[in-house]
Every structure is written in C-alpha cells, then in structure tokens.
C-alpha cells in the first residue's frame, strides 16, 4: 500500500509500481535497513528515510496540529468566552465554557501559547470536533 517516507521530518509519498519492481535498481545506490529506517547512500551522501504506513500516517496527520486547536468534545453552544485573539494563555487555563447536554464544560488551553483565533462567540452552536480556539503554531 502506498505510504510515506519521512525525510528530515517531512513526509514524502512513496509508492512502488510493479514496473519499478522489474526495472533494475540504480547501481550507484547503497541501501541499508534498520526496521522502518532506510538509509540510502547516493551521489556521495547518506540519507535517512523513515517508512510510515499510510494508515498511521493519515492518523498522525489529522492528530498533528491538534495541539494547536482546542476542539469541541461534543456538540453544544458557547456560554462564555474568556480570551480574545492575541491573549497569552498557559496550559490548562480556561479559555471558553460551552454547554452541551445541560452540562457546562470548560475548554482549556491544550498548552502554553497565544490565542490566534476564537472561532465561536457566545450563543453560537457547533458540532463535535469543531475548532473552538486556535493557538498560534509553535515553530518547530
């Protein structure tokens, strides 16, 4: 199944067509494997590629960035907003309170950061997993 190679942390789609299998491999390449880590020496340089099967990849892809976004744990409506764009928050700080199924739930900052966007105002409703507040991404 086509998957991905992580090269320097960036995912590159990887597939193998049957024709590729038949064609003789480029002779100048030297390859070594250590589990999912594949090392390729080509053109006088060594490169590390880390195989990621597609299901894992797409799961992680949708999970990543989750840290930047506080999402609705259930459908509901906003009853209180404690922050505005540009506010600094610390992990665990209450940013919003929502009401759902007659329960009030606090939406807390998933990490320390700066509020980039407040997606819903008081009274607005939303679906489960809807983005409520997005924090500015942290440069890696």
């Amino acid at each position: 199944m086509p998957g991905f190679f992580l090269i320097d942390g960036v995912a590159h789609p990887a597939a193998l067509a049957p024709a590729d299998l038949k064609a003789s491999p480029p002779e100048e390449a030297i390859v070594a494997k250590d589990g999912d880590h594949i090392w390729v020496h080509v053109d006088g340089a060594a490169h590390e590629l880390v195989w990621q099967d597609p299901i894992t990849h797409f799961e992680e892809e949708s999970a990543s960035g989750g840290d930047d976004v506080a999402r609705a744990p259930m459908p509901g409506s906003v009853i209180q907003v404690a922050v505005t764009d540009g506010d600094s928050v610390t992990e665990g700080e209450i940013m919003m309170v929502i009401e759902s199924m007659k329960l009030e739930t606090a939406i807390k900052a998933p990490r320390d950061g700066v509020v980039m966007t407040v997606h819903r105002a008081i009274g607005q409703t939303f679906e489960r997993d809807a983005a409520l507040i997005t924090l500015e991404a942290i440069a890696l």
Binding site: H12, A14, L21, P26, A29, V31, V42, D43, L49
Partner: peptide, 26 residues
C-alpha cells in the same frame, strides 16, 4: 535540503526496500 529530483530518487530507491510495498507490487 535535497532537491526535488534527489528526493524523488531517494524515495524510489528506498521504496524497493519496504517489504509492504514490494509484496503489494509483486
């Protein structure tokens, strides 16, 4: 950072060494 052509080449070379990919292509 390796250029696109090199990356494509690396991916093509390494793909042959992923048993999952090889088995499915075969």
């Amino acid at each position: 950072v390796a250029d696109e052509a090199t990356l494509a080449r690396l991916v093509a070379i390494a793909a042959r060494h992923v048993p999952e990919l090889v088995r499915e292509a075969a």
